[in-house]
Amino acid sequence: MSTQDVEAVGSREAVEKKVTAIWESQLDLQGIGPDEDFFELGGHSLHAVEIISRLEHAFGVAVPLRDFYLTPTTAGVAAVVVSMTGPGPQPTSTRHLPA
């Protein structure tokens, strides 16, 4: 594993920790695992919108609601955040949602 790979993993782990903390705060739960489904945890669309707002504040990126629904786990959302903040081309679905 190269140094860049190690840095990327560390970065993703840090993002995932922050995403998890935001979910736990918003859903008033503790110990959310990386593969637990947001909707099975009691989340709904209004929670998702609030979490997306908090992610934008924390990371400076607007995770599209569509991506949140497609990857409704902390690991999945963290991967979207990393892909939006990392170097290289941005995914085509990273449009800002209208206010």
Rank of each mutant, 00 (worst) to 15 (best):
I22W: 00
L65D: 04
S25Q: 09
D5P: 00
M1L: 06
L46K: 03
E7G: 00
P98T: 09
L46Y: 04
T73S: 14
I22H: 11
P87C: 13
L70M: 11
K18E: 05
P72D: 15
V49C: 09
K18W: 00
T73I: 01
F39A: 10
H57R: 14
H47N: 14
L27A: 09
L97R: 06
Q30Y: 08
E13R: 13
S45T: 09
E16Q: 15
P72C: 14
V63C: 04
V81M: 12
V15E: 02
R66Q: 12
G33E: 15
Q26S: 15
S45H: 03
A14T: 01
T73E: 11
S25N: 05
A78R: 05
D5C: 00
S53R: 09
F39K: 08
H57G: 01
S25H: 05
G60P: 05
A8D: 02
D67Q: 03
L27G: 12
S93A: 13
G76W: 04
M1T: 03
Q30W: 08
A99I: 00
D5A: 10
P64R: 12
T94Y: 02
G33L: 13
V61R: 07
P87N: 15
H44D: 13
E36V: 01
T71L: 02
I52W: 05
V77C: 14
T3P: 01
A62L: 06
D5Y: 07
A75T: 01
Q4H: 07
F59P: 09
E24R: 07
V19W: 04
E36Q: 11
H57S: 10
F68N: 08
F59H: 06
K17D: 15
S2L: 03
P64I: 05
T71A: 07
L27H: 09
I32G: 08
T3A: 14
V9N: 10
E36K: 12
P91I: 00
T85A: 13
A75I: 00
D28R: 15
D35R: 06
G43Q: 10
P91Q: 15
H96Y: 04
V82I: 02
G42D: 09
Q90E: 05
S2N: 03
G31S: 14
F38S: 04
L46C: 04
R95F: 02
R12I: 00
